Amino acid sequence: MTPVAATPAQRGTPSVLELPGATADLRERLGAGLAAVNALIEERVDHDDPFIAEAGAHLTAAGGKRFRPLLTLLAAEVTQGINEQVVAAAAGVELTHLASLYHDDVMDEADVRRGAPSANAAYGNSTAILVGDLLFGTASDIVADLGPDAVKIQAQTFIRLCSGQIRDDRPCPAGTDPVEYYLGVLADKTGVLIATAARYGAMFSGGDEETIETMREFGERLGMAFQLADDLIDIESDADETGKTPGTDLREGKRTLPVLHVLASSDPTDAHLQALLTGDLSDDDRLAEALTLLRAHPAMDRAREHTYAVARRAQDVLTALPDSDAKDALNALATGVVTRVG
């Protein structure tokens, strides 16, 4: 196993095609599989109405890491390899993810996504919401061809994803541990779709029930680590590195793990930062001050160590699998998602 370590940070989420452990043969198969996924996405997002086709392809055209479909393809390589059903499942997962981004940007009032104008900035909130719905429908249409089990999994995934987003938009209920609440939100809003990506890959490549469950659990833990790292990146990085506006979570009043650690502090020297974090951060100067103070706070190191620990727990799940190039690449992927900077 390749343990998570504080290696030099990568600029973006690492592609499986670039990871240590991905041999030339594995990269070739994954590259061909990803090309097939992209072709299917482009085909299914296209529309007779030019405006709908343009809006639907807006985020696809802006690029993206294709992290989830790559995970589906790699999970398939753990078993009997990539086939047409695996490609379709990977496309369905990615379209579900893209649909959620259209809605996210409306909720976040984001101006930038992947270094380009967000869909809501380009087309307005109403169109962005409706195009997100259209992509959810397209994803479901693709998954429906994979059989009733796939449809059930897609529906259950969508329920958890939406419930996580709803809870993410609301304060932690009184009497509930804020950290546990936050981690539960992450499991639903991010972990579940990445779990489904890995689960589909093993499922549609002929894996047995034990392997399918192993990949599902790995994916959920990997998804948690991915989102924890994303929350740190929102604080640490700038727009040139991420293609997103830094401090978006702070401006919205979202209490991510570093913020929760600061707010739980009884150190008097943290009082000013606590006041900033619980106050109105719509002012650019106040937001910039909060970001500066938070970046230098020990809470960031504490949150980073928790993120690494979750990634290590994802790697631990893989010990049940026989050794293979795909397993090595999965281990490296878990390291890569938490050492990236964008």
Rank of each mutant, 00 (worst) to 15 (best):
L186K: 04
L135N: 11
A32F: 03
H272F: 14
T278P: 00
A36Q: 13
G137P: 05
D328C: 08
D133A: 06
R44I: 03
T7F: 11
L17G: 02
A174F: 02
V93L: 04
L318N: 05
G247H: 06
P20C: 03
D325Y: 00
R312I: 10
V37A: 05
D249V: 08
V341T: 14
T96F: 14
L287P: 04
G279F: 07
E210V: 14
R29W: 04
T242R: 06
T23G: 14
L260Q: 11
V16F: 10
P173H: 09
A150E: 06
H297T: 04
S140H: 12
A311W: 09
L321Y: 07
Y102C: 08
G279Q: 10
L26Y: 09
D111E: 15
V87L: 06
A195W: 01
I235R: 01
R113F: 10
L34V: 05
E213R: 15
G56T: 06
V93A: 08
G33A: 02
V16A: 11
T245W: 00
I235L: 14
K254Q: 08
P268L: 04
R167N: 12
E42V: 11
E54A: 15
V4M: 06
F136P: 02
A155N: 12
I129V: 15
P20V: 04
R114M: 05
Y200R: 00
A202I: 05
A121K: 15
G207R: 06
A275C: 04
D145N: 13
G92R: 06
T292W: 05
M300T: 11
